[in-house]
Nucleic acid binder design. Structure first.
Lengths: 198, 198
DNA sequence: CGACCATGTGAACAGCCGTTAACCTCGGGC
DNA sequence: GCCCGAGGTTAACGGCTGTTCACATGGTCG
């Protein structure tokens, strides 16, 4: 499930493997219409192939979605941890780093953000558990930083704060387009920092 | 489509009409699993009837969803406009009123909030247009207030700000439970006000 | 050269689910 | 007392769609 010779070798190459093409196209379609409303034929057509060809690369449509969501969660968790580690011991700097990271991710991968919190429910119990665990660990990264910034606050409060900030930043996909990316990044960053301390 | 003798007469009575029961149960189920993953039989079972009985009250499953979303949008728009009107001429007070209103709505109707932005895509083009128009008018309510509070800001910026604040407040459903409602309301209100001006 | 594996195709299957049809029942007005 | 409409029920249809199957093809390696 975790080891894929393909993706390790040329995942983001100029000519990504069919597998990667499919995952990307599927993410886009899932974000637009919802995973349940997208047929296997649609995904195939998006990469110039018929529907059943998908099964040469994935065990099932659900497996596709599962891999997609697990990857996102892993990228977020790894990235978040890295940001905190790289920001030194200053909690304020850590928060800024986390926010910048999340803003960048959300603006750079609107489709993934959308799918992640819309289609989590479509996963099998086992897969959903796995994704939720990764998400929780990512949230804990934030909670730890927020707790250091506001010691008297309870953990529950910090968690709620973190979720609210996610909501703020991840709202991007719903309002995309009107502002160019740098301006949007700037605005979201300022808003998130203000909200995180309120 | 808009006139319903039933709902006008005893919509929120102690014993709501079957229609209302169905709409409520459906909202709950749709929020939990997504409208596409919920069967007509599930909705029926939730109110103690069989699936096809639904068709005595709604033309189709889609019509159910449509009515649900239109109603939410209308409630938000009407409520928002009322809040602004009642807050007098002070833009800051208007913003506070809008935030309090949205926070209250989100905490009081988490299922509706979830369904509204997850299942909009499942509507027919005509219905989707109608809902989006109502939503846009509600957003404009916010944009007008935000513009008065920060005159140099462009309309696009204000719109982005409004969407971000919605994201912040509406994140509630995803993090519900850990904090009791008054505490959550307080936290979200403070965060939203801080974010709206950043 | 020949065998093989990866990849793709079109056809067919199977199950789910929205919707309809035909039939029941009960409470209330002429 | 009878009729009728509102609201339910069960059974059945029909389409959509995930998945599988049998078969083609083309590059690669022995």
């Amino acid at each position: 499930m975790t080891s894929e010779p393909d993706s390790a070798l040329h995942a983001d190459a100029d000519r990504p493997s069919r597998r990667e093409q499919i995952l990307r196209a599927a993410a886009q379609l899932f974000a637009e219409r919802g995973s349940r409303a997208v047929g296997v034929d649609d995904v195939g057509a998006a990469v110039g192939v018929t529907g059943p060809a998908i099964y040469r690369h994935f065990a099932s449509k659900d497996a596709m979605l599962a891999e997609m969501l697990v990857r996102i969660s892993e990228r977020l968790l790894a990235g978040g941890a890295a940001q905190v580690a790289a920001a030194g011991d200053d909690a304020a700097a850590q928060l800024r780093a986390l926010i910048a990271f999340q803003v960048d991710f959300a603006l750079g991968n609107p489709a993934l953000i959308t799918v992640q919190d819309r289609d989590l429910g479509a996963l099998s119990d086992a897969d959903a558990r796995r994704v939720r665990q990764l998400q929780r660990r990512y949230v804990e990264e934030w909670v730890a930083v927020l707790a250091r910034l506001d010691p008297p606050a309870t953990t529950a409060t910090c968690r709620a704060r973190a979720h609210a900030v996610f909501g703020l930043i991840n709202s991007t996909p719903h309002s995309a387009g009107r502002l160019d990316r740098p301006a949007m990044a700037d605005l979201l960053t300022r808003m998130a920092e203000a909200a995180a301390r309120a």
